[in-house]
């Protein structure tokens, strides 16, 4: 990370498809959203799943996406959103 992530930052979810136990849903990979809440640090599930200790723990963020950015055929309202918990190792900050 080039800088700490703070509320209001625009972030892109890494468009990566590593094998194994990953808690980042496919539908947000490569998508851009806004960090709206900072959560605690949690053990890395991608490590925990294989019996390791999950350290270092990673900060988790609420990232808010516009539904119309996630689904090209979204049939709801323009203001509708989805909020997903994302671990820091999946976030890319955007150059302002």
């Amino acid at each position: 990370m080039s800088r700490p992530i703070t509320i209001g930052d625009t972030v892109r979810i890494r468009q990566a498809f590593p094998p194994g136990h990953v808690r980042t849903p496919y539908f947000i990979r490569g998508k851009t959203g806004e960090v709206i809440r900072l959560l605690s640090d949690y053990a890395n599930p991608e490590e925990l799943a294989y019996g390791r200790d999950g350290k270092p723990a990673l900060p988790v963020y609420w990232v808010k996406f516009q539904q119309s950015d996630l689904w090209s055929d979204y049939a709801g309202q323009e203001q509708d959103t989805a909020v997903v918990e994302v671990m820091e190792n999946w976030l890319e900050t955007m150059d302002e």
């Binding site: 988790v60 808010k64 509708d80 997903v84």
Partner: peptide, 12 residues
């Protein structure tokens, strides 16, 4: 009204 869906993917 804004409809907001929360995806519970991690530790909460």
């Amino acid at each position: 009204v804004e409809v907001r869906v929360h995806d519970s993917t991690a530790d909460l």
